[in-house]
């Protein structure tokens, strides 16, 4: 979109967007979760897009924000993985390296005032030890590593739940359940989400992303049915 008088076009706002991505670091790996919707404002445009990507055997990536910018990042990463393969040195690229590489890419774009409008969650394991690695990169180049990460509405809704559920010895199987529960709450409360989700788990054995599956949701809660404005009750 036009950002000024000059003829060069800069990204100013996102158009086709994905909502939150959440991630949890576990004792034996990481779990990422995201729904499969990309929205065009309030239109639910594509309901079966994968917002999680397997980067390598030891790393997965989830995006929120502009879909086209993510496609650009996806092809950049695929090129990176191809050149890694061609190096043929038997040294797999660490998730931290991919994280920092993406941080530099995003920062570079931001410096040109033409950002890649995304927040990316990188989840992986250190190939040698199986220890999990979870990090975030955003459109400004902000990057950090944490035990639990959420983007978009997830920071308000899912992050407190992830913080409560986290234990240093939580397993990937338990983590998967936690992520699914958080995605369910996000579906209840985020107006730009759907109930079809994907979960990606990365362990020492490898990275796998599930097929999209429908969340079991219940709309029978008393507060949902009763509505707001009951005395002392609220749907908040």
């Amino acid at each position: 979109m036009f950002g000024g008088q000059d003829s060069k076009q800069h990204t100013v706002q996102p158009y086709v967007t994905g909502t939150s991505v959440i991630g949890l670091k576990c004792a034996d790996g990481v779990v990422l979760g995201a729904d499969t919707l990309v929205s065009y404002g309030s239109l639910a445009k594509n309901r079966k897009t994968s917002r999680l990507m397997t980067v390598s055997n030891h790393c997965s990536l989830g995006f929120s924000g502009e879909y086209s910018d993510f496609q650009e990042i996806k092809s950049t990463l695929e090129e990176l993985m191809i050149s890694e393969y061609c190096m043929a040195d038997n040294i797999p690229m660490q998730p931290r390296a991919i994280h920092q590489y993406l941080a530099r890419v995003m920062y570079e774009a931001r410096n040109k005032q033409d950002p890649l409008y995304n927040q990316l969650v990188i989840g992986g394991v250190l190939p040698a030890t199986g220890e999990g690695y979870l990090g975030l990169v955003d459109l400004l180049g902000t990057n950090y590593e944490s035990e639990m990460i959420a983007t978009g509405y997830g920071t308000y809704i899912a992050l407190p739940l992830l913080r409560k559920a986290y234990r240093p010895d939580i397993t990937v199987a338990e983590g998967r359940k936690v992520i699914e529960d958080c995605l369910r709450v996000l579906y209840y409360r985020d107006a730009r989400s759907i109930d079809t989700v994907q979960i990606s788990t990365v362990t020492k054995e490898g990275a796998e992303t599930t097929e999209p599956f429908k969340l079991e949701t219940s709309w029978d809660f008393k507060k949902f049915k009763a509505g707001s404005r009951l005395i002392d009750e609220s749907t908040w």
Partner: peptide, 24 residues
């Protein structure tokens, strides 16, 4: 996401069209 302060598009005499600007 931060869209920054809207900037009036040049040529919009009474400021009817607003274009968001990226705040780095």
């Amino acid at each position: 996401m931060d869209f920054g302060t809207p900037v009036l598009e040049p040529g919009s005499a009474n400021g009817t069209k607003q274009v968001p600007q990226f705040n780095p």
